[in-house]
Amino acid sequence: MTVMNEDILRVKGLVKHFFTRLGTVRAVDNVSFAIRRGETFGLVGESGSGKTTVAHTLVGIYKPTGGEAYFRDQSLGEDFSHRSKALKKNIRIVFQDPGSSLNPRWSIKQILELPLRIHRTSYGKNHVEAVSELLRMVELPPEEYLYKYPQAIGGGEKQMVAIARALATEPDFVALDEPTSALDVSIQAKIIKLLTRLQKKLDLTYLFITHDLSLMRNMANRVAIMYLGKIAEVAPTREFFQKPLHPYTNMLLSSIPVTSDEEEKLKPKQIRSTGEIPSPVNIPPGCSFHLRCPRCMDICSRLDPVMTEKEAGHWVRCHLYPAAGQ
């Protein structure tokens, strides 16, 4: 019997740099977090914040440049070519762009057969039934979809096929990299509902990545916000939205368009969005946010702040909130 609070995934000081002609892209720079079994851990941030790179490194598209990551007790320090089959079975991903994530030359049957053939040999020859079962799980009638090609179905349906493909290996952990950002809200609602239902039914742990804070509010148990490869703040979801500490969290919250006065009240008023996210090739010294920060102090341009726990489970990395005893 496993404990509910078991950390299924631990990431410690994860670093992923890309070496390009323009210089070193510090996409992920010393990121640490742990994900508990059965929870949905949210990673939010703008483009270039490194949130997708974190997911891609964890699932094995890249080998980390530094730091450690463990799934249970197996190291995630290598890319897919050196990972065990069991690890590949247990860690799966749903990609952001449903258009690019399904091979346009494969029928849906072929797409869903692949993980079955590799990881579930016990299903033997009867792939059609197994594939149909997967399609029913994501609420697509098999008789209608089995032999269709990706270009013949809508974006939402493509993403459901991608979810079925990820779940085909019966994984424990799924990284959801902006699974609905390319879709309309009415379809998004359906997919999110489906994901939550499947999570309960199959005892899944999610790493949920999005740039949409309103969606995050309704999906995650805990939220971490990233800026230029580093985590700026981590907190349980309710706390994160009611008492945001980091100026960047506040800026992001103040920028989102909402649809009711009730939500308008939750948006921080005293802060306005300015500037652009700098290139991750050229990260400003000190706190990387200080150039855009409305509450910037002298120390911010010199010294990179460290994570401190302001309240139980609520961590923030900002000089406004110095660690006790400093």
């Binding site: 598209i61 994530s101 692949l114 590799i118 990881h119």
Partner: peptide, 24 residues
């Protein structure tokens, strides 16, 4: 992403080249 996905699923290089990439 579909090539990444095939890699992460654990198929061999030959399969990726001839079945995933070549048809495209």
């Amino acid at each position: 992403y579909f090539v990444h996905d095939a890699e992460l699923t654990g198929v061999g290089r030959g399969f990726i080249l001839t079945r995933a990439i070549l048809p495209n």
